[in-house]
């Protein structure tokens, strides 16, 4: 499997405020009744974007200036709760290719990385600065993974990311299946030993 080397992500960004945004909110459970992931994008954040009559509430994600945004910005503990990969898949099919937040729940972080969606952690102050600059300039963001920098206008913000995830994205090894398959002889050996 040849995977894309994700060295940077460029695009417009949109800020969805709030802490502890859980995966039920990203994709409510009732939309998980599906046997494929395609088509989940339209249900992203459904219950804050639409009322019960399915009428648009003009949520920030649906405002014209945020059309085609490919970078999502949010608060702390983003993606907590259920392990459903439907959440990052919905965000992916909605069009997001990177997420910037104060912190991420672990299972969600791993699920995103496996799909090649970098999850960038920034302090609250840096997020505020980024969001303010966005509001003033409405310009594109560049996430430079190799140099661990977010660039917008003349502003450069450094960020941290666990090395394992960073390396796997930059080197195009974010989907671990190929690496796991390579070691099947060793898997078989250990299986025999453990089955004793």
């Amino acid at each position: 499997m040849t995977l894309k080397k994700i060295k940077s992500v460029m695009g417009k960004a949109v800020f969805v405020s709030g802490n502890d945004i859980d995966t039920d909110r990203i994709i409510p459970a009732r939309f998980m009744k599906c046997v494929t992931f395609e088509g989940l994008g339209q249900y992203t954040f459904y219950d804050v974007r639409f009322d019960q009559a399915n009428k648009s509430l003009n949520h920030v994600l649906d405002q014209p200036e945020n059309k085609n945004a490919s970078i999502l910005i949010s608060g702390a503990n983003f993606g907590c709760g259920s392990s459903r990969e439907h959440a990052p898949q919905a965000l992916f099919y909605f069009g997001f290719r990177a997420i910037i937040a104060e912190s991420f729940a672990e299972i969600f972080f791993g699920n995103c990385t496996t799909l090649g969606i970098p999850c960038i952690s920034l302090s609250k102050d840096k997020i505020n600065l980024l969001v303010k600059t966005l509001a003033d300039k409405n310009s594109e963001i560049k996430i430079d993974l190799e140099n661990k920098l977010i660039e917008i206008e003349n502003l450069k913000i450094d960020f941290q990311m666990p090395e394992e995830a960073l390396k796997s994205l930059i080197e195009g090894q974010w989907d671990s299946l190929a690496a796991l398959l390579e070691n099947m002889p060793k898997v078989k050996e250990l299986e025999k030993q453990l089955a004793k």
């Binding site: 392990s83 459903r84 990969e85 299972i107 791993g110 699920n111 496996t114 394992e164 299946l177 796991l180």
Partner: peptide, 21 residues
């Protein structure tokens, strides 16, 4: 014992193993 995403369900089905920190 822990929860995993669907791509990892695939990994376990195919290799009975996972890449973990």
């Amino acid at each position: 014992a822990f929860g995993i995403g669907t791509s990892q369900v695939r990994d376990v089905l195919a290799t009975q193993s996972l890449a973990l920190g």
